[in-house]
């Protein structure tokens, strides 16, 4: 049994400790907001927060979550109103949407640490989040907007 918290709730899972956390979240805890893109740490679709730090769930063994706080897109805010989520809506960022939960989780981790990032800092922090629809310009705008809104 591996015990940890997901979005504030205590969970216990009986799975192979080496199972990627992404598998566990999606298939065992039915939290399908976190997406599977590449499964090999390249694309960023699976970014979640582990004790507040952005990590790639596809390459994180579930055992690493033991005793820790996991936050997924479903738990980033109670009503979907985290400044990043609001800015995403205001800037109409998503196109197909597949990459967006990972984008939002990376952006939220960036802003938690760097409240007013420059374009360069945004580019560096978001370099691992690929968007096949090419929404990068809107992502950058939305991060600046969220930065201003969160003050």
């Amino acid at each position: 049994m591996i015990a940890f918290h997901v979005n504030g709730e205590a969970v216990r899972v009986d799975v192979d400790p080496e199972m990627p956390l992404l598998w566990c979240l999606r298939d065992h805890l039915q939290l399908t907001g976190t997406k599977y893109g590449c499964g090999e740490a390249y694309c960023g679709a699976c970014v979640i927060h582990l004790d507040g730090e952005a990590v790639r769930a596809c390459v994180t063994p579930v055992a690493k979550a033991s005793g820790r706080q996991v936050t997924t897109i479903e738990g980033l805010s109670e009503h979907g109103d985290h400044p990043v989520q609001r800015a995403w809506r205001e800037e109409n960022v998503p196109q197909c949407g597949y990459c967006q939960s990972g984008q939002i989780m990376s952006a939220a981790a960036l802003l938690a640490e760097v409240p007013a990032p420059t374009d360069d800092q945004i580019d560096q922090s978001m370099a691992g989040n690929v968007c096949r629809c090419g929404t990068y310009d809107r992502i950058r705008k939305a991060i600046h907007r969220a930065s201003q809104e969160q003050g």
Partner: peptide, 21 residues
């Protein structure tokens, strides 16, 4: 690494056999 994209986003304190990281 950069904020939100640390080395530790993927790299753990040991080699991961399943994911090869």
């Amino acid at each position: 690494g950069a904020a939100g994209l640390r080395c530790a986003s993927c790299h753990q304190s040991e080699n991961l056999s399943f994911t090869r990281v």
